[in-house]
Nucleic acid binder design. Structure first.
Length: 806
RNA sequence: GGGCCCAUGGUCUAGUGGCUAGGACACAACCUUCACAGGGUUGGGGCAGGAGUUCAAUUCUUCUUGGGCCCACCA
């Protein structure tokens, strides 16, 4: 059998994608009795194209999926897309050049739906292209009716449990997005800021100086505080200060939250400038908050002349006014860390609004317990989960003042203002369109629908349910829960992972999955995070075009699980080289196997026993590593074994037996064929999860006819159990001799085929064993004559002494 | 301020309480008609620093230095 000279990934890879889809190679079988391995696949957000980081971590989870499938398990590997929420809105606003806020919700949502439909196929193709072996027929979108129903049902259940409440409370708001956001969506920003020292008159002809970085909140000022132990200010406590310009009179009170060593030691409180204000207000309920800011970050009529300004504008105006009033004593530049919205980078504001919350701060211990029931790979990632829980300060704000999201299924009675919650049988509902099924208790039939939508994470935290409930069979649903694996990257442990545990805790009283596998990030060549703004983003499509999906995966298999990996284009060359090498080795093998019928020889030659024994060990090791999600070890072990043990040594050693059956005997040839067939097939299978395309190509070209399974990816994971310590010792000795001769030839600048006149070997090997391998050594070294002397019983300095005469 | 991870040739990495610390890329020399020039062979070059545990430390402990990530602080 003759193979084409070269393998062309550009042609082959799309060919196999089609084949897999047509043959339903990755289909989950709901009827099967086989053990299920289920994966809670991360739904990528359609707001961005697949980037290198995606291909990196999706490749890593796919290694595991493919391995488990080859173990014979019924792999439940759904695929979803996240097209719900802010990120999607933003993309659509940009694509269609519209502003959602200025449109009717229905109109905008319709536009979102159609746009998302338009781009979906192209978007998903990128995931298929890298060889993701998900069952793409088990598909969901986080905004479709199915997901809406489940997400709203979750809301209803939590509401019934008393876990959801609505409250007018200070919340974090993104002025740019004009919505409330949650603690998890915050990102730190370090910046320089000005600390203003402001002089305020105090009754009784005194004065004091307070320091602030937030002059713009002047109109909200409710008090000035000093530390109770601060002797500098003792005499002022209880008196009234007048804020310059606003002429507002505020009490000077003692509060130990005040830092004596910051600014002047006196601070003016203007809820809500930050989290401390919230605490301060709670401690002093007698002080009345003024709420001068709206959620779009603009000041309202309570801010008087500053109405309509945002923080930055108001700051300038207030400072200007203070300067005119000669109230500014000093300005100081200080470093400051502020919270920004991680999606858009806007500095957030604290605004009191009506919001919906999930009450869960009382359950921190339980969440930590749940985290410990899950097996983490790598284990240390659990620390991040626990660290996050320890630092949680807010209940989960799940309402967003946006358009494109899953509506909160609630109405308010026009007459009595009661909250009316939707009924499960009417889900999904849009309260702006639909009506409650029953009248209000007060008899009224007029309602105002809740305008807010749910936080994206309130839905994506339900992905296990969304995927599982695509199947209506209850027994199957139970079998699928908890899932086997949650694969994801480490940046969303606090978002997706934690929130999913929370939802599962409430709805199932169980962990959502047994294992989590946390992958790292693909970094730029210098080890920096890739980001659009830095311009260091690498497009995986370009790399696949230039190299191949297999090479990209080969690269992704090179890092330890959880580790970030800087991307160097040259690393893709390695994958290509491996592909070429295995192509050529297989070409050689298939040529010599064309007449092989799969027979097991009665007597297996020493060197064939040697390779099969080595193979058995690699196989065992690889299986264990894969079980522990250590795919990089499997890849490395297989790669080394293939390249060096198999190609460099074994193939060279058996060549003579394969080519010259007339001299060496047909038994010797069949034995070599047996070794060759089984070793190559096993290598291809071990490599199949990592490089699904080239392995499929080689499998189809030759092995399929002999193995009778339609794809290597559903073939059985190899079980070679031919360990033979004796053969390994003798084989290793042969390799040492061959390597020695190679080195000699290289040093003498001779061709590797150059004949050796006389080869003298002294070794701790029995003559009976040497006789078995002599012909193989002769052939592999081109030795004309070999003198062998066993050193048994003697105690030579070296185990082996070799001399070659040319 | 708290937590976590990491430090191995020029670059990216594997790994181990004890063999000559493994590989890839880059570099150098050599080798081609019989699987492979999209190749092969051979070679040069490395465990951040200090202290400790140990018969033995690149590996374990601790400190220092340097890098990365998460969280808190935010007047």
């Amino acid at each position: 059998m003759e193979l084409p000279k070269n393998y062309d990934a550009k042609v082959s890879e799309p060919k196999w994608l089609e084949f897999w889809e047509k043959e339903k190679v990755y289909a989950f079988n709901p009827e099967s009795k086989a053990e299920i391995y289920s994966i809670d696949t991360p739904p990528p957000t359609v707001s961005g194209k697949m980037h290198l980081g995606h291909s990196f971590s999706y490749a890593q989870q796919d290694f595991v999926a493919r391995f488990q499938r080859m173990l014979g398990k019924n792999v439940f590997y759904p695929f979803g897309v996240d097209d719900n929420g802010l990120a999607t809105e933003r993309m659509i606003e940009k694509m269609k050049n519209v502003k959602g806020q200025f449109m009717q919700r229905q109109e905008f949502v319709k536009l979102c739906y159609t746009t998302v439909e338009e781009i979906r196929n192209d978007f998903v193709y990128d995931w298929k292209r890298i060889g993701t072996s998900a069952d793409f027929n088990i598909f969901y979108s986080t905004i479709n009716n199915h997901s809406q129903k489940i997400s709203q049902r979750s809301f209803l259940e939590l509401y019934k449990m008393g876990r959801i409440y609505r409250k007018f409370a200070p919340s974090m708001a993104c002025p740019n997005c004009a919505t409330a956001i949650a603690q998890v969506e915050l990102k730190d920003l370090e910046r320089m800021s000005t600390l203003y020292y402001i002089k305020a008159q105090v009754d009784g002809n005194e004065s004091t100086v307070f320091a602030t970085t937030r002059p713009e909140l002047m109109m909200a000022c409710i008090a000035i505080s000093v530390h109770p132990d601060d002797k500098r200010f003792n005499h002022l406590i209880g008196k009234t200060a007048t804020i310059p310009v606003s002429n507002e009179k505020v009490p000077i009170i003692a509060d130990d939250m005040t830092k004596m060593d910051f600014g002047t030691g006196a601070v003016y409180w203007c809820p809500y400038g930050d989290m401390n204000d919230i605490e301060f207000v709670a401690k002093h309920p007698d002080l009345k908050v003024k709420h001068i800011m709206n959620r779009d970050g603009r000041l309202n009529e309570k801010a008087g002349k500053y109405k309509g300004m945002n923080s930055e504008e108001a700051r300038k105006a207030v400072v200007n006014d203070w300067e005119k009033a000669e109230a500014v004593v000093k300005e100081e530049q200080i470093g400051q860390v502020v919270n920004t919205h991680e999606r858009c980078g806007t500095v957030i504001e604290f605004v009191a609004m009506d919001q919906w919350f999930i009450k869960y701060l009382d359950l921190k211990d339980d969440f930590i317990k749940y985290g410990r029931k899950i097996k983490w790979y790598p284990e240390h990632m659990r620390a991040r989960y626990e660290n996050w829980i320890h630092g949680l300060k807010w209940d989960w704000n799940i309402s967003r003042q946006r358009h494109f999201g899953i509506p909160i299924p609630v109405w308010y009675c026009k007459k009595c203002n009661a909250i009316i919650v939707a009924e499960e049988k009417q889900l999904p509902v849009d309260p702006l369109v639909d009506k409650p099924l029953k009248k209000c208790k007060c008899g009224s039939n007029e309602f105002i629908g809740e305008k807010d939508v749910l936080d994206t994470w309130a839905t994506s935290s339900l992905t296990p349910d969304i995927a599982i409930e695509l199947f209506k069979n209850k027994t199957l649903q139970e079998k699928l829960h908890p899932m086997g694996l949650r694969p994801q990257a480490h940046d969303i442990i606090t978002f997706w992972l934690f929130n999913t545990v929370v939802k599962s805790y409430f709805h199932h009283k169980n962990i959502p999955w047994k294992n989590v596998m946390i992958s790292g990030w693909a970094l730029d060549p210098k080890g920096k995070k890739m980001s659009k703004s830095k311009g260091n983003v690498i497009d995986p499509r370009e790399m696949i075009g230039k190299y191949s999906a297999d090479s990209l995966r080969f690269w992704a298999a090179g890092s330890r699980l959880g580790d970030d990996l800087p991307f160097q284009e040259k690393d893709l060359v390695t994958g290509n080289k491996f592909t070429t090498k295995i192509w050529n080795a297989s070409k050689f093998a298939f040529m010599h196997l064309s007449d092989y019928k799969g027979e097991r020889p009665s007597k297996i030659n020493m060197m064939d026993r040697w390779i099969l024994s080595k193979l058995s060990k690699v196989m065992k090791e690889s299986t264990e590593n894969f079980m522990n999600y250590e795919y990089s070890h499997t890849k490395l072990a297989t790669e080394t074994f293939f390249w060096h043990t198999f190609c460099d040594n074994y193939l060279e050693i058996i060549k003579d037996r394969l080519y010259n059956a007339d001299k060496r005997g047909s038994d010797a040839r069949v034995s070599a064929q047996f070794g060759l067939y089984n070793t190559l097939l096993t290598i291809i299978k071990l490599m199949a999860p990592i490089m699904p395309f080239i392995t499929e190509e080689l499998y189809q070209l030759y092995f399929r006819n002999h193995e009778n399974v339609k794809s290597v990816h559903i073939s059985k994971w190899p079980e070679v159990n031919m360990e033979d310590e004796h053969a390994e010792r003798i084989g290793d000795f042969v390799v040492k001799v061959v390597e020695f001769v190679r080195k000699q030839k290289s040093e003498k600048q001779l061709s590797l085929k150059a004949p050796v006149k006389k080869l003298t070997i002294k070794a701790k090997i029995e003559e009976i064993d040497f006789d078995e391998v002599e012909s193989d050594i002769k052939a592999a070294t081109s030795a004309e004559q070999i003198i062998f002397e066993p050193t048994r019983g003697k105690h030579p300095e070296k185990d082996i002494e070799i001399e070659a005469e040319f």
